[in-house]
Design a binder for these strands. Structure first.
Lengths: 137, 137
DNA sequence: CTGGATCCTCTATGATACTG
DNA sequence: CAGTATCATAGAGGATCCAG
């Protein structure tokens, strides 16, 4: 039976009963999500889902990203197998980043969250404003 | 026309052209995702998607969460309208947290990412191991 | 052009003690 | 029971300079 469909409550209880001691550090979800859910990786992956880009092109597309963070985001995406990196030994060198099939499928899953955000961010802003107003009173 | 379907590249270019200066701070996606994508909120929302819980029950279900962080996660979820908080004036007091329709629909969108992670985390681990091995060589 | 190396700051998270 | 207040720490992210 597919453990995925058991309630999270039951899974957490089973972990405790089994004496699992590692916290949730190698939880499958965290393995994937915690490395992806940072400030820039989702944005970079979305751009690469449209077409391949070179390093400098990505920088120009996202002006407020620092050089250090775009490098790190690309490395993280590459490390997890979401993008490939190809060096063309021109002079000066050029490097192309291209999304992989794994990355494309991750992006499509992430996309449902993006769509939800675009559809519902007004409701969230409204709830936030109402909550903050209630607090001030 | 629905701007959602224009490429991100075009949207970023339009922002620059319009002289938008706020970085991406009020990007609809960040408004939603950056407050939700922290260490504990997704886990708490998932538990509440199964049934309502009281404060202490949630603590016991997630043993390695600190008191401070569960409070903050619940406040953040409440603030954005994803969960409701009901105080029962018993003695000692008890407080019930319950997911809202907005929270339920967010959870369903997030769920596609969870499912992807469960289906593909082995591939990600493998890619990561291969990458790290290549680095060491 | 594509980064690597350093230094610095700020925020998220955690530990602990206290309260209605 | 359900929190709040305070202090401490690790890591993310940013600025800057340097190099193949």
């Amino acid at each position: 039976m597919d453990q995925r469909f058991s309630p999270l409550k039951a899974r957490l209880a089973a972990r405790r009963e089994a004496g699992v001691t590692d916290g949730l550090d190698n939880c499958p979800i965290r393995t994937v999500v915690s490395s992806f859910a940072n400030k820039w990786s989702p944005l970079v992956l979305q751009l690469l889902s449209e077409q391949p880009y070179r390093f400098g092109e990505l920088r120009r597309l996202v002006p407020d990203i620092s050089q250090r963070m775009i490098t790190q985001s690309l490395r993280d995406l590459q490390r997890d197998g979401y993008v490939s990196r190809t060096v063309f030994p021109t002079k000066p060198p050029s490097v192309e980043y291209r999304i992989t099939p794994l990355g494309q499928s991750l992006y499509e899953a992430y996309r449902s969250l993006v769509d939800w955000a675009e559809d519902n961010h007004e409701k969230v802003r409204a709830a936030r404003a109402a909550f903050d107003a209630g607090e001030g009173a």
